[in-house]
Amino acid sequence: MQKKFLTFLGRRRNWSIPYALFLVFFVVIPLGLIVFYAFTNNEGQFSFSNFRKFWMQPEAMNTFIFSVGIALITTFLCLVLGYPAAFIMSRMETRSTKLLVILFILPMWVNFLIRTLATVALFDFLSLPLGEGSLIFGMVYNFLPFMIYPIYNSLLKTDRSLIEAAQDLGATPRQVFLRTILPLSVPGITSGIMMVFMPVISTFAIAELLTINNIKLFGTTLQENIYNGMWNYGAALSLVMLLLIGITSLLNSEGSSKTAEEGGLI
């Protein structure tokens, strides 16, 4: 018996069983349930009514479009702020970068709810209004490290000799950046965008706290439905969001599948 158990352990393949079980119970089955709920009505019969409701109800649709807009703006701001930061960090000596990287990562050690509450307090203290502005500020503040880190990683992995090769072939510092450094960091940019865009689109806590529930994001709508027992409609909305995220990741991986292994976190 014991011997049998040992040979069972001896097979490397068997080590994946615990995780496979986890996957089945916490990923595959829930996904199946979401699909099932999304395509059934209250009585458990197959129907498209949930999607029809989403399509017809301007409120849900508007929230959806608004959320996508907020996510796009946040991602764009993170990219604009994050790329130069990552670039400067990747150019610095190792000793000083370590400190900087820690400084960038440090806020992430604090729970993001606490961070967001602190942001609310800060806005209060400065008597700034809570609204769209504070929402975007909170999003950018929370998700900026997720943009910087993958870009920093891919810039760091860029072979210095490629930059020298570009210089050697006559590229001015500007051309070196535009023609080698930037295109070579695309995998990092892609993962950064994914890391920011995906969570921002589904988040609701930040919106709730930073706008005192004045602005609803798609995540909020979703959460409210589920919370109020509207499982079928909620599942349909989740599916729509999953679809959107799925499409963005597909678009991303299309462009970078070749260089994906060279940078980034995804």
Binding site: D159, S161, L162, E164, D168, G170, T172, E262
Partner: peptide, 20 residues
């Protein structure tokens, strides 16, 4: 003179071809 203004071109040890 910086490298991009020298009448010199280099074949690098590890080729340094642009992967993109």
């Amino acid at each position: 003179t910086p490298p991009h203004r020298r009448p010199v071109n280099t074949v690098f040890q590890k080729y340094a071809l642009f992967p993109h």
